[in-house]
Each structure stands twice: as structure tokens, then as C-alpha cells.
Design a protein around this nucleic acid. Structure first.
Lengths: 250, 250
DNA sequence: ACGAAAATCTTGGCGTGCCATAATATTTGT
DNA sequence: ACAAATATTATGGCACGCCAAGATTTTCGT
């Protein structure tokens, strides 16, 4: 407990954040290599850091078997995620920073803003609960309200729902979407599903500005939808592979 | 030139900033020990860093004789000072952060905001030229418009002028002043000067809310005044010691 | 189902940035 | 000219990255 405050660097926070998101998208311990990929580091470096994080009590590390966050580690992750998402919203809302650039800026600032600044920003924004990409913002008490969402690519013809979020970390995708006037909060329905892993034809919006777009590839995997019907049972047939549920955190 | 971008860390920026301000308050090269004091580091550490800064061309280091910033080094310093002061103003103005806390926050943020964020903040504030402590903000082209000011403690009875600024780095002083409703921009005149290094009795403001305060000690040294009369000749008698002109940068 | 190759993970050695302390060198004041 | 003040140069430590070598687990062919 006492060692905690000393051992808190951008690097440490990034590890916690990464472990948190990987942990929540698959219910198993997080593997060293997954972490190395996500952080763009070598497995060797990650392994060394995991040892340290284990020693200071942020994770439980069972060598060769992966890691899990402890309650302390989860708190670190959630704090940083809260910072990140508040900052994204703040930059977009209060400073008109373009949607596709807030992520990179928040990625740095999240590690250095004080508690006090965090509160001032939250207050200024009216204690928001979702950021401009549709990601939920943990509360000041670090409660995170994850919605059940599906990747767009998992929808079937005729499905409709709410486009709730998209990964914030790919500026290309974000620019692409905003150029086409697509944003979280839009209603959507799937008109057609091309075979052979092809794109989906999806109608966005309602009434006047209803428009169709063909969406496929990685984009269809990154866009998350809150379905009108109950989500399909796990294991049900006729759904494409590469599933996952909660998805994309910071 | 090419090595520059690589060699740019918070530490490096802090050194440049510190050298800049020490350099501008005395026209001589900056001594290692002055720098060590200001940065709260040991002379040994500073000496090592100065060697590096010399090698990458940010300073000219003549061993045992002190350092001066090169044009590149000055640019680094001014950029960081611009960040710092814009941030102070932004935090105070747009987020209502109390006057005495903006400094500490800006001290960290100044090293991590992007050019783009700097511009957005400057734009939002209407390209301001002075920060909430009365310090001038370097322009985007890094021109710095230093006013000629005197420490309040150097004024004589009957002198009047504009209270233009105060060091931003001492939260105690800032809190003290703001509790008494004294802020940069106030007119002031010296009613009485107590002997033996005692306080000055100074009237602040005009008309209605004109009030007298006794000000002495370090506070009288930190408050800078733009005098109505021409500043006293250097070397003139009857002025107290501990002089200095430009003073307090970041 | 068993052993070897493949995949995965950890360890060890090394480099950089940046700080500290202690020993050494240089300048300065009288 | 010599002590005191001031700077510099080891030397060492910590955080955090890399690579290469060694350990462990998983996968697979037979």
C-alpha cells in the first residue's frame, strides 16, 4: 500500500490500462505477448515490467500463465481511463479539437493531470458519462458502466440498433467516419450483408438525413452497436467468427 | 540541428527555462550553482547535464565559466514559457482554477501539450499577451515583450505605478494577495516607507475600493511594479540593496 | 499418447536518461 | 599563495527499453 504512490509512472499506468482492457474482453488472464503487442514493446520488456508490477501489488503474476489486475491495479486503470475519456470529451467539446486527434493528446495528458484538474474538467462538462467516441467514462468513484455491444460486423441483415462507439485509437477510421457524418449516437440498420466477408450495407440516421454506407473490413469490426433485439446467444450458429463482447477501452 | 528533436525531455526543457530566466536577470553567463539551486538539484548532476546540453547545441558551456543559451536553446525556453503562461491563463480563466494553484499544474503540462493544443488554447483565449500573474506571454513567433519593472521594495515614498506582476511560483504569496483582493493590473502608490527594512504602506486601487496594505519582507521583493516616473538611474544612492531588474520568468 | 518442434515466456546483459554522492580540479579572495 | 568557493569527473542507482539465450508450455505428427 505504501509503495504504491512511488511506483506510478506513465509506463506503469499504461500497463494497467492495457491489462484492464485485454482482461475485460476475454475472461482469462492476460498473456504477456498480447500485452507486448498492444503496448508495442518486446515480450522481454513486458515480462520484466510484469515482475515489478507483481511485486508492488498491482497485478497477480503467475509466471508463464498470464496476469490479472488486483483491486489496486484496477483502480489505477480506471483512474487513467477516466482521465483519458474526460480529456477526450473536453478537448473536443471545449476546445473544438477534431475528433480524430483528441485521442493522441489525451494519451499523454491522462498521465499528468492532477486530481483537482480532473474535477474541474468533469464539472465543466457536467459530469458526463460517455466520451465523444461513445465510450463510457468511469465515475469519480471509479464505477464503469459497460454497455453490452456487438461489433457491427456481427450483425445480420435486418438488424437495427444504436451505433454507440468506435475505437478511439485509429485516427484514420475516425476521420473517415466523421467525413461521412457518422457519429456515435446514430441509429443504424443493416440492409444487406454481402457474402464472402464482404461489406455490409448499412443505413445511418433517420428521416431526412438517412444515408446508406458500405462498411466492411476492420472498420466493421471496430464499430460497436447496441442491438434492438436481444443479443444473439453465445455459440449460436450463423454468426461470423472473430467475436468479442465489451471491447475497446481507453 | 538534427539531434535536437531527439534530445527534448521535460528535464532538458526545465534546464533551458531556468537558464533563460537566470540569464535575463543578470547579464552574465549562468553559474552551475545558481542553476542547481533553482532546479533543486546537486551541482554534480547539473554539471553533467550541461555537458550534454552543450553537445547538442542548446547552450554554450565554457567549463568553470558558466553557460549561455544558444539561439536554439532560447527557442526551447521561450516555447516552454509560452506553454506555461498560456496554460496558467487557461486554467484560471476557462476552468476557474484558483490563482495560486495554476502554476504547479502548468509546470507539468507545459512539457506535454502539442503544438496544436497550444494553438487551440491561445485561440480560445484570444491570443493573450499577459498571464494571470502579469507575466508577458511570448508570441507564437517566440517574441517576448519584457516590461521594465522594479521590485516593490525598491520604491520610495510618494512613488506610484502599476502593479504588474508577481512571481507565480509561491502559492503562499499568491493566496495571501488574492485573499486581500490585490491582483496584477492594480494601481498602487507608496504612502510610507518604514525604516530599518520594515514594510511599506501601500495604497492599492482607486476611488471606492482603495485600500492600504503593509507589505514587506520577501513579498515586497517579489511584487513588480511599473513606475509612473522614469525608473531610478542605476547606481543612484538612497535605494535599498538587493536590486535586480527583469526578474521572475516562468 | 509421446516426444520433438513451435510457440510462448522469462532471464541476463546492455544502453540511455537523469539523478545522487564522493573525490578531484579550477578559480578566486585576501 | 593558499584556503574557500565553485565546478567537474568518477561511480553508482533506478526506470525502462532492446536483444539474445534459456526455460516452459503447447501443439502435433505419428
Amino acid at each position: 500500500m505504501a509503495t504504491r504512490e512511488v511506483t506510478r509512472s506513465p509506463a506503469v499506468e499504461d500497463y494497467c490500462k492495457a491489462i484492464f482492457t485485454l482482461e475485460s474482453r476475454a475472461e482469462e488472464p492476460v498473456a504477456t505477448n498480447r500485452l507486448a503487442e498492444r503496448l508495442a514493446l518486446t515480450p522481454g520488456s513486458v515480462s520484466a515490467m510484469l515482475k515489478r508490477l507483481g511485486e508492488v501489488g498491482l497485478i497477480e503474476h503467475h509466471p508463464y500463465r498470464g496476469v490479472r489486475l488486483t483491486a489496486d491495479g484496477r483502480a489505477v486503470a480506471l483512474e487513467v481511463i477516466r482521465h483519458h475519456r474526460l480529456l477526450e470529451l473536453f478537448l473536443a467539446e471545449s476546445l473544438q479539437m477534431p475528433w480524430d486527434r483528441v485521442h493522441a493528446e489525451a494519451e499523454v495528458l491522462e498521465h499528468v493531470i492532477s486530481e483537482e484538474l480532473e474535477q474541474l474538467i468533469a464539472a465543466q462538462l457536467g459530469d458526463p458519462t460517455i466520451d465523444p467516441h461513445g465510450d463510457p467514462i468511469p465515475s469519480a468513484e471509479l464505477e464503469l458502466n459497460e454497455l453490452e455491444t456487438l461489433a457491427l460486423e456481427l450483425l445480420r441483415e435486418g438488424d437495427s440498433g444504436l451505433f454507440v462507439r468506435v475505437s478511439d485509437s485509429d485516427p484514420e477510421m475516425l476521420r473517415y467516419l466523421s467525413e461521412r457524418g457518422i457519429a456515435p449516437g446514430d441509429r443504424l440498420d443493416v440492409r444487406e450483408r454481402q457474402p464472402f466477408g464482404g461489406p455490409l450495407l448499412v443505413a445511418f440516421g433517420e428521416g431526412e438525413d438517412r444515408r446508406e454506407h458500405a462498411i466492411g473490413g476492420r472498420l466493421a469490426g471496430a464499430m460497436r452497436v447496441q442491438l434492438d433485439r436481444e443479443p444473439a446467444q453465445t455459440g449460436s450458429a450463423s454468426l461470423p467468427p472473430t467475436a468479442s463482447l465489451p471491447g475497446s477501452a481507453a
